[in-house]
Amino acid sequence: MLEIRWHSRAGQGAVTGAKGLADIIASTGKHVQAFAFYGSAKRGAAMTAYNRVDDKEILNHEKFMKPDYVFVIDPALVYTTDVTINHKDNTKYIITTHMSTDELKASQPKLADKEVYTVDCIKIAQETIGRPIPNTPMLGAFMKISGMYDIEFFKDKMKGVLSKLPQKIIDANMQAIQRAYDEVK
């Protein structure tokens, strides 16, 4: 079982990202779950989304999770929420920030002893897609860190997920995914 928790703000596309990832993984024959904590969250409110992946049918419907990966797609959430909650010893963190990993760890001591990777998904999204929607670049970074799929295979599958969008937006997302893949450290 692979489990992922996304930290996001409502409107940044974490749910779409989690569902898109689930879509791609399901197409390779694995079982998936993608869900989120809703409430009456308004745009901009801190929220979490989740992925589960397994080789067998997923029966567990508890919301509680000790994630293998934590994705943070809004830089400020590292300070305003506890992104390390319910962590495992080997939980990996991929965090959107303009800082280096060392600078980030210095600014948030909770991350000091954690396996942290950083990438500026917000900047990448703005420069490629033209809007600060950091969900697809985060998945590019995840492909690099996890080695789950070859990046070309992943981009190809992602084109299918995004197929209803205009070609220009699809192309921009592909650039964003590739840049995050190349730039994550």
Partner: peptide, 12 residues
Amino acid sequence: QDGFMTSHTAQG
């Protein structure tokens, strides 16, 4: 079906 736990949880 269970609200959110099924209605908003994507599965195969």
